[in-house]
């Protein structure tokens, strides 16, 4: 893998910083976030690795992982991170890039009857729309 100034400071890297308001360089890879994450078992890249990949400019790798969709925005990691990294914010920025720009939608109107039938509260449905669609 080649690392260059372009790959480190590319437009995507800058965009992620702008959307999340977070400087991924703050992370020193202690792994606290991953250790604390309640859904780490379902992720293909672990939370701290998401940050490492971003530090190395490997944006596509993190945009293609399932981790950003598995993250529950539970803020367990953010509350315990010794460097004060807003990792849920970074996850959101990654989702936002896919939703806004690449027309991603993981929760469509057609899915509604399924969840409604189960008695899913509005809070869940609205959250789903907010997190999974544009």
């Amino acid at each position: 893998m080649k690392i260059t100034t372009q790959s480190l400071c590319g437009t995507m890297v800058k965009e992620i910083a702008a959307i999340s308001g977070e400087n991924v360089a703050k992370c020193y890879q202690c792994g606290k976030c991953t250790a604390a994450c309640p859904v780490n078992m379902a992720m293909d890249i672990l939370p701290h690795q998401v940050l490492r990949f971003l530090q190395l400019g490997l944006v596509e790798a993190v945009l293609n992982c399932n981790t950003i969709w598995i993250c529950a925005s539970c803020f367990t990691c953010a509350g315990r991170c010794p460097r004060g990294v807003d990792l849920p914010g970074v996850m959101e920025a990654l989702r936002a890039i896919l939703l806004r720009k690449r027309g991603f939608s993981r929760f469509k109107a057609g899915d509604m009857p399924r969840v409604l039938n189960k008695g899913m509260p509005e809070q869940g449905i609205v959250s789903g729309f907010r997190k999974y669609t544009k």
Binding site: V39, I70, A72, C74, M120, I125, S127, Y132
Partner: peptide, 15 residues
């Protein structure tokens, strides 16, 4: 104080 899974139940019930 753990997370219950929140809105993941919309997409990933099994988790």
């Amino acid at each position: 104080t753990e997370c219950c899974g929140v809105y993941l139940s919309v997409q990933n019930e099994e988790i």
